[in-house]
Design a protein around this nucleic acid. Structure first.
Lengths: 130, 130
DNA sequence: AGTACTATCTATAAATC
DNA sequence: TGATTTATAGATAGTAC
C-alpha cells in the first residue's frame, strides 16, 4: 500500500528487494514499450539481475534490439568522427520526417475513405497535415 | 490532467506527441535508475528519437553502459548482423524503404481520391516526398 | 517551444491469504 | 514463496500562460 515514501536506497531485506525488483522490472518494460508505441521512437531496455541467467530485454525481437544498440555500439570511439555523428544525425532526422509523412498520409488515406460516400468535409487532419 | 485513459497508440498530433515523449522519456530514465539503486542490478535504457541527434542513455557513465552491454555484445546474433549494424548503410536502406512506402501510399491515396466527389487537392507532402 | 499546474490515472509497498 | 488486494505515492495528459 505504499505506506512509505520509498527511500531510494538499496533494499536490505532480501525478500522485499526481490519482490520490488520483479514489480519494477515489469513496470519498466511496460514503460519502454509504451514510450515506443506512443511516440514511435526506438527505445530499448536491458536488465541483468542475479535472479536470472539471461537478461530481460525489450524489445524482444532481436533485430530491433540490434537496431537500437547498433548505433550505440561505436559511441565510445565517437570522438574520432564528428562527421559520422553529424551524418547520422542528418540521416536520422530525414528518417523522422519521412516517418511522419507516412503516418500523415496514412491518416489522410483513412479519412478520405471514411468520408467518401457522404462527401463530408474532413476535419482534424488538416492542421497536422501541413 | 490525464482526462483520458491514454490509448496506447501512436499520437498523431505532433506537439502532443513530442510533449508526451519528453515527459515519458524523463520518467523512464528515472525508473531505470531507481530500479538499479533499489535492487542493485545492472540495468540500462537507450532512447533514440527524431528530436535528438544523440540518444538518451542511462546510465550516463559510458563505462557502466558498456559493462551492462558487455554480455549482450557477445551474443551470436550480434555477429550475424554486423553488416546491418553498419550505421550509414542501415539508415540509408531505411530511407529507401520509407520512400517506397510513401510512393505506394501516395498512389493508393490518389486512386481513392479519384473516386471521391469533391476531390480535394493534396498539399504539403510533396516537399518532403522528394 | 518551455514551464507550471493539477486532476486523474498508474505503479507499487505493504498487507493478507 | 507466490499470488492477490488495496491504499498511497508517483507519473503524466491536458490546460494555461
Amino acid at each position: 500500500m505504499v505506506r512509505k515514501k520509498v527511500k531510494l536506497v538499496w533494499i536490505q531485506n532480501d525478500a522485499a528487494r526481490r519482490a520490488t525488483f520483479e514489480k519494477r522490472r515489469k513496470g519498466l518494460i511496460k514503460k519502454v514499450s509504451e514510450l515506443s508505441t506512443l511516440c514511435d521512437v526506438k527505445a530499448c531496455a536491458l536488465v541483468f539481475s542475479p535472479y536470472d541467467t539471461a537478461p530481460e530485454i525489450w524489445p524482444q525481437d532481436n533485430q530491433d534490439v540490434m537496431r537500437v544498440l547498433g548505433r550505440f555500439r561505436n559511441m565510445p570511439e565517437m570522438e574520432q568522427s564528428k562527421k559520422m555523428l553529424n551524418q547520422e544525425g542528418f540521416l536520422r532526422n530525414r528518417i523522422g520526417k519521412l516517418h511522419e509523412q507516412l503516418h500523415k498520409l496514412n491518416s489522410e488515406n483513412r479519412e478520405t475513405k471514411l468520408h467518401k460516400v457522404t462527401d463530408e468535409p474532413v476535419h482534424g487532419w488538416r492542421k497536422a497535415y501541413r
